[in-house]
Amino acid sequence: MMTERKIRVLVAKPGLDGHDRGAKIIARAFRDAGFEVIYTGLRQTPEQIVAVSIQEDVDVVAISLLSGAHGTLMPKVVKLLREKGADDKLIIGGGVIPDDDIPALKEAGVAEIFTPGTPTSVPIEFIKANVRQ
């Protein structure tokens, strides 16, 4: 007798970026979509984000970055998760991220990037379609 499986998502703000309007809106939207959401708060190192992702056994790590540090910090989270043997998580990113940077982030293991103006329903549907079973 398996109860309905809950999708667990970590909404993470790595680096020094203080813009959390997007992260908080997406956290609320995920909650309203029935997900369990863990929000890290500001100024988390990739190491902290990875440790929390593991302990909480989240299905999804959603990284929000508007400071331009995405090229450094997002791949680092992916790399550390792999090193710790927790590479079955769906990693997505959002924020002010130029289109030109997206291929490199996907190459590094970020499943999808959502840029400004994306309705919250888009990442929600993406998660439902792609989350680990």
């Binding site: 020094l16 970026d17 400071s67 450094t72 910090l73």
Partner: peptide, 22 residues
């Protein structure tokens, strides 16, 4: 940039990826 706004020098670990960005 953010390290300057938060009182970290450019060689601080927390500054990684943020130096000169915003």
């Amino acid at each position: 940039d953010l390290p300057t706004q938060i009182g970290y020098d450019s060689d601080h670990p927390m500054s990684e990826g943020e130096v000169g960005k915003v």
